[in-house]
Structures are given as C-alpha cells and as structure tokens.
C-alpha cells in the first residue's frame, strides 16, 4: 500500500535547507560582484545596503506591498472565475465553442501590456485597473487548462456514470468537474506566477500606490537601494504566494498523481 499524501518531514526539511543555501550563495555572489567590479551603489547596491533600506523603510514598503498583493489576489480570483465560466460555456454549448474559441486564441495575439494605458483610461488610477490587468493575463491559461480538463474526462468514468443513469448536470458536477481539477490546478500554478507581472505593469503605467509605483518613484530619485528593496519584497511575496498555492492545491486535490497515470 502506498500513501502519496504525506511527504515525509525529512525531505521537507532537506528542501528548506537546500533553498536557504541557494539563497545565501546567490547573495554572496551579488556581494562579490559589487566588491570585485567596484559597482557604484546607484548601479548595483550591495545586498547589505538593500537590507538596511528594507528595515529602515519597513512600514512604507509593507503598506505598498499589501496594495500589490491585494491586486494580485483579487486579479487571481477574478481571472479564475472568468476562466472557469468561459470554459464551462464552451463545454456546454457547442455553437458558443465554435464562435468563442477562435476569438479566445486571437485575443492572445494582442500583447496584454499594450492594453494597460486603455485600462487606466477606463478604470482609473486606482486598484481596479491593476486587478483587471492581472485577471486578463491569467485568463487564457486558466480557460484553456480548465477546458482541456473538462473535455478529457477518462471515458470509463463517463461510461460508468451513464450506466448509473446520471443526467448531464450530475455528470458535469460529480464527474467532469472533479476530474478536471488536477489539470485546472496546473493552470492555477501558471496563473499565480504571471499575475504579479500584470499587477506591476499596471502600476508602472499609472498608479498612486503599490511596489511597482514605489520602484518608479525610487528610480526617479536615484534611490536605487530602495528600488532593490521593493524588488526583493515583490520577489519574496510572489514566491511565497506560489508555494502557498502549490501547498493548498496538493492538499485539496491529492488525486492528481493517480489520474495522471490513466
């Protein structure tokens, strides 16, 4: 009997240990580059200076990080809901699929970043335009993975459901949707990685808050160490968000390994 659901604690600690060693080595290389090539702090500040700024401007950075984080999370929620809805529509109504699928694919040819100024115009400089931006760039991966998962239900499951007299809705709700979740989960993992890009680009184009805004402000004032501090914080938040999502998905969709072998 194999139990897939509980990776043993030893491997998890080993993982953390390797991660911290990697981070320390990278910081060391960064410091060495600054020392060896005599980088001026307005081109590449040493890591210690960045940490100094991080601690000094802690509350300011944290407030702005919170803004960016809420934009990312709200964008994720909006994008995932829209993607799910879209995929379900395409699955349930064949004519809709025939008309929408080409539109969906063509929409990917438009660089979403080019839409940022228009979104500013429509939704203003507040959080809404960034949320919409983040939602827009994750919409495609979510829709396609969800639609793929819903379409490729193992046929044996559907045969079984049919001989048991399940109607269309019960088949969708009890068989197709849960069977699609592992595929959807990989879409969500991609979405969590790209959503911060949307939010930050939105902030660059026009905003009054957030880490992207802070970076532009520091850059304009030649406070490069502050810019790096904001960047570092953004990276930490994005990585934390990814691991949190990954953990939750593995926790609540533990059957992904099994289905992959079918």
């Amino acid at each position: 009997m194999t139990n897939y659901n509980h990776p043993d604690k030893h491997s998890r600690y080993a993982h953390l240990w390797r991660l911290s060693v990697t981070v320390l080595v990278l910081l060391g290389i960064w410091h060495l580059i600054v020392v060896i090539f005599e980088m001026p702090p307005f081109i590449l500040p040493p890591p210690l200076l960045v940490f100094e700024k991080l601690l000094a401007n802690y509350s300011l950075l944290f407030d702005h990080a919170l803004i960016t984080l809420s934009e990312i999370v709200l964008g994720l929620i909006l994008g995932i809901c829209m993607g799910l809805l879209f995929a379900l529509q395409m699955l349930l109504f064949k004519p809709v699929r025939r008309w929408l699928l080409p539109v969906l694919i063509a929409s990917q040819a438009i660089p979403v970043f080019a839409l940022a100024p228009i979104l500013m115009l429509w939704f203003g400089y507040g959080m809404t335009s960034k949320v919409v931006m983040a939602a827009l760039i994750i919409f495609f991966p979510i829709t396609t993975t969800c639609f793929d998962g819903l379409r490729h239900t193992p046929s044996g499951y559907l045969d079984l459901a049919q001989t048991m007299g399940a109607n269309r809705w019960r088949q969708l709700w009890s068989i197709r949707l849960p069977a699609a979740l592992p595929t959807l989960a990989s879409g969500i993992r991609v979405a969590v990685v790209v959503a911060p890009i949307g939010a930050v680009v939105g902030e660059w184009v026009g905003s009054a808050g957030g880490l992207g805004y802070l970076m532009l402000q520091s850059n304009a004032r030649m406070q490069i160490a502050d810019m790096f501090a904001a960047l570092l914080l953004l990276a930490v938040f994005s990585i934390a968000l990814y691991y949190l999502t990954d953990f939750l998905l593995k926790r609540f969709i533990p059957w992904h390994r099994e289905q992959a072998s079918r």
Binding site: G156, Y157, D159, L160, A161, T163, M164, G165, A166, R170, Q171, S174, I175, P178, A179, L181, I253, W255, E258, Q259, R262
Partner: peptide
Amino acid sequence: IAYMAQQDLLLPWLSVLDNVCLKAKLS
C-alpha cells in the same frame, strides 16, 4: 444493468464508502 470494467473506475476524489454508493449519488 450494472457495468464492471477491467479498470476498477473508482473515483479518486471519493472515499471508498462514497464510491460504493456512487449510483445513489449520481441518480
């Protein structure tokens, strides 16, 4: 009719008890 295939077709997201009661759930 009841149908039993070469694969057990147990739904991985349901407990054993829920799998056994699948027909009631689906109908």
